[in-house]
């Protein structure tokens, strides 16, 4: 990122000119504030992780403050043997994989042609697309369309009605515009290369960074979504994990999970289970996050240049 580069150039100056007392105090305050911010963000995350691997009794009696108390994986054991949760997990994996593939394909199919000057009428199409960011028919009219296409209570409802995000089209289009020069296209054309072949053998290989951005944004979006499932799905066996989570933690329906257990253990576990469930639902995303953070930053910046 450019931020680090320009900052790297600063130290020689700083070494030559000594900081004044006021500046040092100012910097000290900044370090203190940032450290507090760091703590405020990281503490809840650590607390949840620690609780999820503590013993049920320690969680229920509020003995967990920072680190796990009486480490136990009982919560995860119960979770992974609950059919409701495993179905949700499987569904979420399916929706994320299939949904992301559909979304990325459709986004590239519109964004690439829109990036070519030779595409007649691209101004009109881009306007049509961008306008949907400003105005929408609303919840009920959209619901009626989904219903008309027979997608209510089917897996398609989570894959198709929100498949393309306008923002992703804008990002991808400006990437194609700036990184696939028209000259390259013209040269390929003279050599008798068709548009599709050019896309397959030149555009896609040159666009790995933007494809990574698209896959990640759509993937995380699908994994975390619950609203479409809430309005379009009725059968519990189709529910994604987020909806299962909502019923267990937010609506407090732990019965299905702890049915098989004895009364005492059930009470203690219901609290612990909530922490374990949060960890199970969030870990896949948070584990890959440090490795892919730069792609997200990239995606945001490509978008902001255009915006």
């Amino acid at each position: 990122m450019a931020a680090t580069k320009s900052a790297v150039q600063q130290p020689p100056f700083r070494l030559k000119i000594r900081e004044s007392a006021g500046d040092r105090l100012f910097l000290f305050i900044i370090y203190t504030v940032l450290s507090l911010v760091l703590l405020a963000v990281i503490y809840p995350l650590i607390y949840i992780l620690s609780s999820s691997i503590s013993s049920p009794a320690a969680v229920t009696s509020g003995r967990v403050w920072l680190w796990p108390v009486d480490i136990s994986f009982r919560g995860f054991e119960v979770l992974f043997s609950t059919p409701q949760i495993m179905t949700g997990y499987g569904n979420s994996l399916f929706y994320t994989t299939a949904g992301t593939l559909i979304s990325v394909a459709l986004t590239v199919m519109i964004a690439y042609p829109m990036s070519r000057k030779t595409f007649f009428g691209r101004g009109v199409i881009m306007m049509l697309i961008t306008f949907t960011m400003l105005f929408s028919g609303g919840l009920i009219p959209t619901y009626m369309v989904v219903k008309e296409f027979g997608m209510i209570d089917s897996r398609w409802a989570l894959l198709i009605p929100n498949a393309i995000w306008v923002w992703q089209v804008i990002i991808a289009r400006s990437f194609f515009q700036s990184s696939i020069p028209d000259e390259l296209m013209e040269a390929a054309e003279i050599d008798g290369c068709s548009d599709l072949r050019f896309m397959r053998s030149v555009v896609i290989p040159l666009s790995k960074p933007i494809l990574a951005v698209l896959f990640l944004m759509y993937g995380v979006g699908q994994w975390n979504a619950y609203f479409d499932a809430l309005i379009y799905l009725k059968s519990a066996n189709l529910f994604p994990l987020q909806l299962v989570l909502r019923s267990i933690i937010i609506m407090n329906n732990t019965a299905g999970v702890t049915d098989a257990l004895k009364q005492v253990e059930r009470q203690q576990l219901s609290e612990l289970l909530k922490y374990s469930l949060i960890v199970v639902a969030t870990l896949p995303v948070l584990i890959i996050y440090p490795f892919v953070q730069r792609y997200f930053v990239q995606g945001m910046l490509v978008g902001s240049v255009k915006g």
């Binding site: 049509l128 949907t132 105005f135 929408s136 028919g137 609303g138 009920i140 009219p141 959209t142 009626m144 369309v145 989904v146 198709i160 009605p161 929100n162």
Partner: peptide
Amino acid sequence: FKYYPMLN
């Protein structure tokens, strides 16, 4: 999915 709802 965007314009048809506007009609609706």
